[in-house]
Design a protein around this nucleic acid. Structure first.
Lengths: 114, 114
DNA sequence: TCTTTGTGAAACCAAAAGGTTGCATTATGA
DNA sequence: TCATAATGCAACCTTTTGGTTTCACAAAGA
């Protein structure tokens, strides 16, 4: 199935898996042993992560090592960043507004607002 | 229900909704009219978005205006950014490695690699 | 060779997700 | 006051998700 990075990181267990293998690749059993759900459940999560490119699984003897492809997170990063200007500008405007309220209070005394 | 920002942005329709109201709040019907699924379906997406804090819905007469709270995306941004150093460093290492291969080739001629 | 280890995958299940139709409710405008 | 517009929500449906147990199979080690 063609999968999406956004879908990949939607599940908290999958985010934990990514964190677990971010610095060091682990085989499937090692990953699974850190959770209290079954190995098969973790295997399915790993499969989803590999389907959306966030993990690459390489066979080595009878083990499969799971390597995080964190650079794929740039897709998420890019998506979020396109909105950063919008939200920071909006926060700045709020700040300006609050400052203006303050200065008006000083000039005219307490004023009823709603 | 307590919801998660990661879950909120997991669905492509919801990301489109966010984009649609990023610059200007719209009422529920206006949002829905941009999609070919039912108003109720969009309403449910809006509810999920509001449950995870990405949208605030305010009544105004008989309409409800949906405002994007894009600053909530910082949670996603923060999560991704904690891995940026890891992945850029890894790409740098790869680059160094490729450069080294190049210089070895110059010194010793073409060499079989596998 | 035989047993153990590490894994993939099938079959099954309950709950959640994403969608629909239909109805009730509240403001607005004529 | 009455029709209509904008909406919330219940009831229902199908597909997906996240989990389980079970079995098969290949590689390693004794």
């Amino acid at each position: 199935m063609r999968r999406d990075v956004f879908q990949g990181i939607a599940d908290p267990t999958r985010r934990e898996i990514l964190n677990m293998i971010a610095h060091k690749s682990l085989n499937v059993n090692s990953v699974a042993s850190n959770f209290d759900v079954s190995r098969t459940a973790i295997y399915k999560h790993l499969k989803i992560l590999s389907e959306c490119g966030l993990v690459v699984i390489q066979q080595q003897g009878r083990e499969r090592f799971c390597e995080a492809r964190l650079d794929r997170l740039s897709e998420v990063s890019d998506w979020v960043e396109q909105y950063r200007e919008v939200w920071t500008k909006r926060l700045d405007n709020l700040e300006d507004y609050l400052k203006e309220l303050q200065s008006n209070k000083k000039k005219h005394g307490r004023k009823k607002t709603r």
